[in-house]
Simulated assay, not measured.
Amino acid sequence: MNESPVIDENPPPRSWLGDAHLAAVFLTRLPLPDAGMGDLARAMRAFPLVGLGLGLGAAAIAWAAGGILPPVPAALLAVLALVLATGALHEDGLADLADGLGARGGREKRLEVMRDSRTGAFGVLALVFTVGLRASALAAIPSGWSQCAALVAACALSRALIPAAMQVMGPARPDGLGAGAGSPDATIAATAAGLGLLACLAGLGLSGTLAALLAALAAGGAVIWMARRALGGYTGDVLGAVQQATEIAILLAAAGVLS
């Protein structure tokens, strides 16, 4: 999540459909019509809706592949579908943050490393683990409805928590995503979180949702703590890492509940 969209200082009011369109253009690489300039901070309320759509698409891949392939290759194809649909947006953020945290030096040095387009050893290892953990967790879940529920819950709730992460941290630097998009207010963050929890409840039930939420808060909280300590706040890369960490945690929790 590195790129800084150009935001109109006085955007026209957007409907939920308009916010969902802008959120989908920002979060995915799907061939969508240009959303134009708008209030991305407000559109973040639709992040879990975009996640729900991504989860359903990945679930369809997992369902189809599960009928002809063993669980692990089928799960890897579902994860690949998510990577392709998002253009590895969040994975790139996770890799950059891993490289930054692994760099020797102070805050400015870490931020400089994170701006570098090259991926170092820490970034490569982070990518290996995010793909491996998600695929292995998904493979442990029975194919069919259970995998669909887990993917929808993980994709929706992990993106729903991005605005919440921006509530508890300030931008680490004056340019980049924070300066360009602005910070969503508490109402937007609460709306997004509520929609993400509803998606979880629909698929995982109350006990599964509680396990997924606790796991997501622990994983996301760990990333937030490290980012505040090492960088002084969030960047687009930090938010991408929050999404990846919480998605992994939710899938692992779902594997524990559904398997």
Rank of each mutant, 00 (worst) to 15 (best):
A62F: 05
G51W: 04
V25A: 09
L30Y: 08
A41N: 07
L52G: 04
D34H: 11
D34N: 15
A59R: 03
L27I: 09
L52Y: 14
T28G: 05
P33K: 12
M44P: 02
L52N: 05
L27K: 01
A46V: 05
L32P: 00
G55Q: 04
G38T: 03
A41Y: 06
A20S: 14
G53W: 08
W63H: 15
L32A: 04
A60H: 08
D34E: 15
P33D: 10
G38D: 00
G51V: 10
M37L: 15
L22Y: 02
A58Y: 03
A24T: 10
A43N: 00
A58M: 15
A23Q: 00
W63T: 15
G38N: 00
I61Y: 04
R29S: 10
G51I: 10
F26M: 07
V25D: 02
F47T: 02
M37P: 14
V50G: 00
F47E: 00
I61K: 03
A60C: 13
F26C: 00
D34A: 14
R42K: 14
L30I: 12
P48C: 06
L52C: 12
P31D: 08
L27S: 02
M44H: 04
A60T: 13
A43L: 06
A58I: 08
R29V: 13
I61H: 02
R42I: 11
L17N: 14
L49K: 09
F47K: 02
A43G: 03
R45G: 03
D39G: 03
D34R: 12
H21M: 11
H21Q: 11
L17D: 13
D39H: 07
I61Q: 04
L52D: 05
F26R: 00
L40Y: 11
A23Y: 01
A20M: 15
L32R: 08
A62S: 11
V50R: 01
G51S: 11
H21I: 08
M44R: 05
A41R: 07
W63A: 13
A59F: 07
A41M: 11
A20F: 15
L22I: 07
M44D: 05
P31K: 06
L22E: 01
A46F: 03
V50D: 00
L17F: 15
L32K: 08
A46E: 01
P48W: 01
G36M: 10
G18L: 12
G51A: 13
L54E: 04
G57C: 09
L27Q: 02
A20N: 11
A46L: 05
A20I: 13
L22M: 09
R29I: 13
D34G: 11
P31W: 04
